[in-house]
Amino acid sequence: MESGAVVRGAARPQRPRSLRARFGNLLSFRWAAIALILIGWFVYYPIVDNFIVSTTDQDIYTGEVTNVGLANYDRLLHDPIVLVALWNNCLYAIISVVFQVFGAFLLAAIIEDLRSERWRRLWRAIYFVPSAISITVTGLLFYFIYQPQIGLLDAALSRVGLSQLVMPWLGSEHTAIYAIIAMSQWQGFGYSTLLFAIAIQKIPRDLYDAATMDGAGSLRRLWSITFPLTREMTGLMIIVTIAGAFQVFNEVMVMTAGGPNNSSQVLGTWLYQKAFIEDNFGYGSAIAAVIFVLTMLTGAAQLWYTKRRRVQL
């Protein structure tokens, strides 16, 4: 046979797979074993254990554990503060989506539309700075800003002739949760803006030029090009923001600890109150389980959404 000739139809001989080849995949797990053990021990075991604890009544002093079945969940359904906390979490999520997703998207689009790269960088930096501050520090900062009489906000209102609006922002049942949410928007707005700015930068400039040639003005380009092509990021941000809203704890704890009169309770602070202040770990774990399920649902929604709406640039 001449060299280089192509042999057709010759089947490659089948060799039996070696034991090593068969178990190669299994053996490769040893490299991931340490990480798996750590994750299993510190993440998955506590989750499972939390569900077990939520079906018990535990006395932290005597160590006595009583199995109560789903009683803690039944109690949770009839707890009026849980409803207040859940509503506050929802409020937190809705307002955060409006400001930190759609507001941040608009702001990022405006910044990225600026012609000067220098100005774009400056505005991105200005909006991002609050995100670099710890939420606890920001909470303390706003605690002073919201102080009645001596706080910056009331002082500013008085100075501009709006003294009728002066009030104890964190001391009023009607305003406490809104004051906390407002602080949270201030803190998280820049980060969301930056993420949207990155998503917008990924859109090829030629698309905007083509749209301009097609007669699209700024608003039309925003609606027909920028918005659909950042849809993946928008979806992701909505879900991350909602998930974050159900996990909120620090800022509420620092600023009001859920008060006054439980008006600013969220699920996280109510869990803390029940488990660590009132030593009711079973009930606290049931609240934690609810937070877990809500977060998991938003996570699943995130996966589903990003898979469905991906636009290839």
Binding site: P204, D206, L207, D209, A210, A211, T212, M213, D214, G215, A216, S224, I225, L229, V311, Q312, L313
Partner: peptide, 16 residues
Amino acid sequence: SKRGIAMVFQSYALYP
């Protein structure tokens, strides 16, 4: 858009 001009781009610039 008012110049009566149309343009074909190097990258095609089709709306994906």
